[in-house]
Design a protein around this nucleic acid. Structure first.
Lengths: 109, 109
DNA sequence: TCCATTCTTGCATCTTTGCGCATATGCGCT
DNA sequence: AGCGCATATGCGCAAAGATGCAAGAATGGA
């Protein structure tokens, strides 16, 4: 971070990760996300699959996609896998986008 | 806004619009978005199409999708259509998501 | 060791999406 | 009216994504 000024456009574009938005672009995944957001702790795949009318294998795939996007985290515990929302990381990412968007000044003086 | 307390989960889920994320899930659209973000004013389709190696018709479709998602606005001027980024709306949406995400408390006391 | 449980992954199918090409629509200009 | 430019849309195709089913992998317990 010693560039003279990343022209504000650079820093904005860098934060725009298509795979993050793609992960959030599916209704089923959003329901899963919401479920994890209100949970008081990590949830297993079986638990999460009960809230959406999708087969367990599909839920597993959805969770994998969310995990690859960094939206959620997984911790293995015995034969179960508990998924938890990366709450702070996601919120700071969103806030960083909002900040960069507003910092995207047309004329940097 | 007179509900006693939308259980924080409700307000969060309401803000999770799949079509918004879907609109942002394409690299070409993100480049277009960035182009508009750094522009000092509305841009025509022809101008915008010069920054991505996509046919003009494709750019038109991309812009339509961004417009339908509320990310950008369009104003017709003669035979041209000028697109502009809804900067404040988008940033406040992102911030609202971050806020709702952190307000999604597991135990509402 | 054997079996049940939990999760992941290969496969087939269907839908969606992005793309270019051609065509239509809308608008200004002569 | 007729022409040309700017944009939108129908069409077909190829690629990606979502889903269910079945099989595989990993783990705990009898």
């Amino acid at each position: 971070m010693s560039q003279p000024a990343p022209t504000c456009a650079t820093s904005f574009l860098e934060q725009l990760r298509p795979e993050l938005f793609a992960a959030l672009a599916d209704p089923t995944r959003l329901v899963l996300l919401c479920r994890m957001a209100v949970a008081d702790g990590p949830r297993t795949v079986t638990e999460l699959s009960s809230c959406c009318g999708v087969h367990l294998s599909g839920v597993s795939r959805h969770l994998a996609k969310l995990r690859d996007a960094g939206v959620i985290g997984a911790e293995k515990d015995g034969r179960e896998v508990r998924y938890r929302l990366n709450r702070e990381e996601l919120s700071s990412t969103l806030r960083g986008l909002a900040d960069a968007l507003e910092a995207c000044c047309p004329a940097p003086a």
